[in-house]
Write a protein that binds this DNA or RNA. Structure first.
Lengths: 244, 244
DNA sequence: CGTCGAGTTGACATAATTCAAGTAAGGTGG
DNA sequence: CCACCTTACTTGAATTATGTCAACTCGACG
């Protein structure tokens, strides 16, 4: 067992070789812990590091001139976080911890080794990045063209499906450590309206709530309401190079 | 001269070796032309091909159950189009030609060669994909948290800056071959409201219009209105492997 | 010359926001 | 362990940005 969280994530898509596992494990040589609420990196900070999220939830966000905030993406264990550092010198977004988290930072230069010595891993990384890109386009359609109720529903479904990648057996319930304000910042709504939409979803029998635990009662119908498609279930890895 | 459009695009970020140029040229071995308005690929079609856009403008879009459309991204000459095919067996979005276009389709398997034999190109591809991802998050913030006027302004700025990557010298004017309905589908607005917002931008002296030619009169102030940041000017390629 | 698609404008409808007030829950210090 | 304070959640009423519907203009094209 390598103990690499990112390798574990990748193995859900593709069995890895021992060498590949070792290479990935190196990305997680150092681990740091942060408390709930900590801002790990701010927009325009130097972005020399990328992170593997080992445990806990994070989110990346942008602050606008008028003070409003857009949550760009939630991050779950096994995710690579702060990847925009791969493209820019300075961070394009901010990173914060939603719960207590454990993070493994690595210099972006470490990616060089992956591309040079492990073309298959590099290609898999590319595949995953594309899947993330598609997930963002799904949210774009959600914010641009669907109702408040749909957007909230889509957030819930997206969350549970992403959790399922690492934990297949979570069933229909999960703990959602987001305030309604944060849900609003993710969906482009106000906290007040999120509150009302959650209520509506409950009244429609689509979900139940218990403190911050969400249960999805009718996943098919909720997906219909949300115009939601699960993109995480399967990736096309057929074109990848052979392991080296 | 290789004649590779994609290579030309990449050279704006990094000088390439002769071998790299040759490898990229292979992606453009075959060229096909499509008329304005043609749907090149539909969501859920088999996505075995990726395209290099050689000339003309395209867009990718999603259709929702209620018949509304979200334009996910505009594509310009030098762009790789349909890249989600790299991650999924079936297309996650549809592709259409906004003007007459010339496209070079290649099998996604062709990427394998890039990852195996040209790690630097593969890494550069990764960098560009990350930049696209960030561009999408910018739009997410735009749709989620800014006014209709801002969103339209952001579309115009994003367009001109992306055109500038390939043609530095276009100045402040460009031809925008989008109907107001299409602008609306890109910004999450109705064509009627786009019309009004364009008018407001003109009245504010920020832009001028002449048929479908847009002139940006006060780019700095427009960027402020739009909450817009140009992400295309520079990428961090410092960490890339050496050319092989 | 007539038709069609795009742009324009006005009147009205509505989804979501804002403001405000109050409740519930959890954390902390005395 | 209680009293207090803070933070999140809830709900109602008023406001506003954007959407809807409809009519009209204009230019392109056949």
């Amino acid at each position: 067992m390598t103990g690499s969280c990112f390798a574990e994530r990748l193995e859900h898509y593709l069995p890895l070789t021992e060498k590949e596992r070792t290479a990935l494990a190196r990305l997680e040589d150092s681990e740091r812990s942060f408390r709930r609420g900590t801002v790990i990196r701010r927009e325009n900070d130097r972005a020399h590091e990328i992170f593997v999220l080992r445990s806990g939830w994070m989110y990346s966000y942008a602050l606008l001139d008028d003070g409003s905030r857009q949550i760009l993406r939630l991050h779950f264990p096994g995710d690579l976080v702060g990847t925009s550092g791969g493209a820019f010198i300075d961070a394009s977004d901010s990173l914060a911890a939603l719960t207590d988290v454990k993070l493994c930072p690595f210099e972006k230069g470490a990616l060089r080794v992956l591309f040079e010595e492990h073309p298959r891993l590099a290609a898999l990384l590319f595949v995953i990045t594309q899947a993330e890109r598609v997930s963002l386009t799904d949210r774009l359609a959600s914010l641009g063209r669907t109702s408040a109720r749909s957007r909230v529903a889509a957030l819930l479904l997206d969350t549970i499906d992403r959790l399922r990648v690492m934990k297949r057996d979570i069933g229909q319930s999960f703990h959602l450590p987001l305030t309604q304000e944060e849900i609003g910042d993710a969906t482009g709504l106000t906290s007040v309206h999120v509150n009302r939409m959650m209520r509506v979803l409950v009244e429609d029998g689509l979900i139940s709530r218990n403190n911050s635990t969400i249960t999805i009662n009718d996943e098919r119908r909720l997906a219909q309401v949300a115009n939601y498609i699960n993109r995480y279930a399967e990736l096309d890895t057929s074109w990848l190079p052979a392991p080296r």
